[in-house]
Design a protein around this nucleic acid. Sequence first.
RNA 1: GGCGAGAUAGCUCAGUUGGCCAGAGCACACGGUUCAUACCCGUGGUGUCGAGGGUUCGAAUCCCCCUCUCGCUACCA
Length: 662
Amino acid sequence: MEKKKFYMTTAIAYTSGKPHIGNTYEAILADSIARFKRLQGYEVFMQTGTDEHGQKIEEKAAQKGITPKAFVDEIAGEIKGIWDLVGTSYDKFIRTTDADHEKQVQKIFKKLYDQGDIYKGHYEGMYCTPCESFFTASQLVDGKCPDCGRPCQPAKEEAYFLKLSNYTDRLIEHINTHPEFIQPESRKNEMMNNFLLPGLQDLCVSRTSFKWGIPVDFDDKHVVYVWIDALSNYITGIGYDCDGNSTDQFNKFWPADLHLIGKDILRFHTIYWPIMLMALDLPLPKQIFGHPWLLQGGEKMSKSKGNVLYADDLAKVFGVDAVRYFVLHEMPFDNDGVITWELLVERCNSELANTLGNLVNRTISMSNKYFGGVVTDAGVAEDVDAELKALALETPGKVLAKMENLRVADAITEIFTLYKRCNKYIDETMPWALAKDETKQARLQTVLYNLIESICIGTSLLAPFMPETAEKIFKQLNTSARGIEELDTFGKYANGTKVTEAPEILFQRLVLEDVLKVAEEIKAAQAAEYAKENGLEPVEEKKEEETVIDIEAKPEITYDDFAKLQFQVGEIIACEEVKKSKKLLCSQVKIGSQVKQIVSGIKAHYTPEQMVGKKVMVLVNLKPATLAGIVSEGMLLCAEDENGELALMTPEKTMPSGAEIC
RNA sequence: GGCGAGAUAGCUCAGUUGGCCAGAGCACACGGUUCAUACCCGUGGUGUCGAGGGUUCGAAUCCCCCUCUCGCUACCA
């Protein structure tokens, strides 16, 4: 009978920089699922890769003075290197700069255009360059990008749009009738309530503002914008052809069984991607799992915070499998997980070194000490064996059930429950006592055999999660991993096998202080690098140049234009939070002899107490507007840095309230 | 503001359709053991199951209300 197929993908990683452990987590998670499916006997195809186009990359390459292609080649190589380092067993590593991918994307774009799903229009709004996103004026936060908080520029460009309205009803129907489609299910509500039910805005799918992308072949001003390009990788990578000449591989593997992605891009995968597929008349993927994030000590990792953990650094200290174990076992199913050096040390010592490593080590040592390493099932069973055997035989089914629901952490826990039971079995049987009794030799042999057989069963199941460790254990036991169908019988370990004479320590116990020292070194090195990259180092004159902010120039105005604006010094005499809003403060501002009420989106930067008493710069003749139900009669002016930090403009010398600013 | 999730032992969390004295792991303490990586095994919690009210013979589990945390989303002059 032909094997059942399983096609799964990770998101493709954006080639703007080195991926941290959180990004790497996705690759490891995907890998463990892929390996487990293979263990189950599926014909698995796992695809991962890199997303390499876009304005940000174009700019970064220009900064470095190299071509975008050279830039992405380097980063893609680095990403692939890390995926390889952590043992990711992908079948295909796709790059969106691959020629066949680019060609198909062009064809897909053309096809959707020809059939009317893509139309040409105009995009008018505020544009955030780093995020490569357009926003409506109303979406901006203090006039800044709602995603990254950096300044946006007004822009209008001709653009192609993907029409979504034709398919939304079908998509809503699909999501409602396929509860497994969006996982975890709680995410489904977010998509429904925030996007699908209120009605979707058509998606802008081309750009004219940069060149580093796949050209729209029938309109060369445009390049294909990220989502049609990036999402298509899931079909182009396995041989989709828009003209109907898809490969056998494609026909076999599509639809995907699982798209594994970060929860932040769930929207694109559960809304835009399915609609694209509907437009292409292709079946939808069976499941999209938005995994949670790995937080460093409860915070998102960011270079500027200097708390980024990288897989290669961690692997150096703990070993690849320990890192895999940690991220797979410590991540809750649908909540963000926490990773710290301290937690890593603790888990490594208690679970890996003590429970597993020590179990294997003591078992092999006893085999050597008592029987010269030869393992024999002498068949002298006692009641106490039954429980161990029963658990060893139950465990595969339990692990399987957990994995069916992608409960990877729980699956691993089941395996370790078996290892712990083995340790208990040693105490129950007390081999060292049996060894002292000449008449108990056969019993002692049986006990050791039972242990080794149980370890083999557990370790066969462990292999998808910790492949190197499993390999090491099997090598020491002089046997090999079993398929899941071979785990239904207790006693398959060949009688008379000789285990290694010198068991290798699988996991060294770690001393927290030592590890923290290394962590400090890594952190310091990172900080130095960050400073260098961002010109924060006090060495060169470059410094000033690189800490300034450039924003896009607005069109020139006349003095008359300027003269229309009236600025005055105002004194904040009272200020309170706008209860209904997360961002607004409502201030009473004394300007000359009158008092204006002004609402500002600066709650995150100033408390009401800090506001009171400040003399600030006010645009006074702005048309009043209502914000969160409160009338605002002007605008407080602020300066803002690239991180979205705000600073109120105040007069450099004491000035009376009402003084004109001109 | 809208929608959603959550609040259980010092820490991280399990607790299906309400039912036996509310559980696990880690940490901590004590006891046992010595094959082993100072390891393993055992024992130890009087936790107001976020607050309050209600339904019920009986609620961590259902209903109402409140407080706080988190996610998405909106407003952001």
